[in-house]
């Protein structure tokens, strides 16, 4: 079976992003960019399924400008077999991404689409659920464990109250949570090999997709800053402060 893994190029998770001084957008000038951590986990899971002989081919796909080739190559260095780049604006809404992915799904007919649960730039947590709706298939979101048996996927999900296990008929959409696996590091020979793996580019026009935005970003700002606090010297002083100054305990 084929597995499709959509990956997003995002600002590296170690970077603390700030608004531009005019508040028009975030300031990403020269920021280090990486594969969204949740997508990296999705790539790892797909590659493991291939190593177990369950998957036959792992295809990574990214919607964005040409710079996402870097992340597609990085995913191929981790073991994906080939890449698809869908040319679009670097910022594109989850619904439009889901429509692009749906078009690729129709071409490639994967049994499983494995996405990240959330991209750490927009923090939307939507694309997988939307794609599942467009495909008319089941969804296993926030997966911390995945088992494939024949035409069924058993997905253990991280939910607010604990863990839930669902059974999905394939094809299905699965989105990864952080504890699904720990991605490997790419080895130098694999990075070299990845440069020669196939990478196709498609345009929105070729796919017949209207990606015009439905939501406009009017402005961005920094969240309310906390007042600098104080260092207390002892547990006694802490208790006094909490009782008499902050009045949060009695």
């Amino acid at each position: 079976m084929k597995i499709l893994v959509p990956i997003k190029r995002v600002v590296d998770y170690n970077i603390k992003v700030r608004p531009k001084s005019d508040g028009s957008d975030v300031d990403l000038a020269n920021a280090k960019m990486s594969i969204n951590p949740f997508c990296e986990i999705a790539v790892e899971e797909a590659v493991r399924l291939k190593e177990q002989g369950i998957a036959t081919e792992v295809i990574v796909v990214s919607v964005g400008d040409k710079k996402c080739h870097e992340q597609l190559r990085a995913a191929m260095a981790l073991g994906a077999d080939r890449g698809v780049h869908i040319e679009a604006e670097p910022i594109i809404e989850p619904l439009a991404v889901a429509k692009c992915l749906h078009a690729i799904v129709k071409k490639e007919e994967p049994k499983i689409v494995l996405l990240g649960k959330q991209s750490i730039d927009g923090d939307n947590n939507q694309t997988g659920q939307m794609l599942a709706a467009l495909m008319g298939v089941g969804q296993g979101t926030f997966a911390s464990e995945l088992k494939i048996a024949g035409e069924q996927a058993e997905v253990t999900r991280e939910i607010d109250g604990g863990l839930q296990t669902l059974s999905l008929s394939l094809p299905a959409v699965i989105t990864t949570d952080l504890r699904l696996n720990e991605p490997r590091y790419a080895k130098l020979p694999d990075i070299m090999k990845a440069k020669r793996k196939p990478l196709d580019t498609l345009t929105l026009d070729e796919l017949g997709i209207d990606a015009s935005p439905r939501v406009t970003q009017l402005s961005v700002e920094s969240p309310a800053q906390r007042q600098a606090g104080i260092i207390v010297n002892s547990v006694d002083e802490l208790i006094t402060k909490l009782k008499d100054e902050a009045k949060v305990i009695s």
Partner: peptide, 30 residues
């Protein structure tokens, strides 16, 4: 339709504030 996640403030019927980038930035979206 395009959903809007994690709304933390309602400005008017179509304008909302929501955190992005792990809450390091608050976006006003319409």
């Amino acid at each position: 339709v395009q959903a809007i996640s994690d709304v933390q403030e309602i400005i008017d019927a179509s304008t909302f504030k929501r955190p992005i980038y792990a809450g390091n930035v608050i976006a006003t979206v319409q």
